[in-house]
Each structure stands twice: as C-alpha cells, then as structure tokens.
C-alpha cells in the first residue's frame, strides 16, 4: 500500500514528478477548497450580523449615554 506514485528515491530521479500523496485527486481538492472558502464567508457574515444585532439590542440609549466617551475615544 502506498499513497504515492514511487516507492524509493533510488531510481532515476528524472522519472519522479509529483511527490504529494493521492495524485489524481487535484480537481476534487480544488472543488472542496472552493466550497470551504464560500461557506466560510457565508458563515462568518451570518455570525457577524447576529453579533452586531445583539450588540445593538444591548446598547440601549441609556447605556450609550452612560458610556465614558472621553475614555473610549482615546
């Protein structure tokens, strides 16, 4: 069993090209990577929107008035 396409370094080195495992899976890896990237953005934006909505709820007018802006704005 080998996940690579060569079994030792002792042969003619010019015959060796790819040295990463599972050669031939590149296209599937790219698709998986693209899905991961898009899902990351969607999940992040949902989480950020929810967090900001929560913050706005917590920041009542009274709480905003009570903030020490002099300290916050430095």
């Amino acid at each position: 069993m080998s996940t690579g396409t060569f079994e030792n370094w002792a042969g003619n080195i010019v015959d060796i090209g790819v040295i990463y495992p599972f050669e031939g899976s590149e296209f599937v890896l790219v698709i998986a990577g693209l899905v991961f990237w898009v899902c990351w953005h969607i999940r992040q934006m949902k989480a950020e929107n929810a967090a900001l909505d929560q913050q706005v709820k917590e920041l009542s007018k009274e709480k905003l008035k009570s903030l020490d802006l002099d300290d916050l704005d430095v």
Binding site: I13, D15, G17, V18, E26, F27, V30
Partner: peptide, 21 residues
C-alpha cells in the same frame, strides 16, 4: 491552474521542461 500537478510538491520529472516545478 489550481488543479495542475505543478501547483504542488513536484520534482520536475519529464513533464516539466520549463522548470515551473
């Protein structure tokens, strides 16, 4: 191209005459 074998660990071999690997 992102699925190219040359976009990864590669020693060149016979399929890379331009040395991109």
């Amino acid at each position: 191209e992102p699925w190219s074998p040359l976009m990864g660990a590669h020693l060149g071999g016979v399929e890379d005459p331009d040395g991109w690997s």
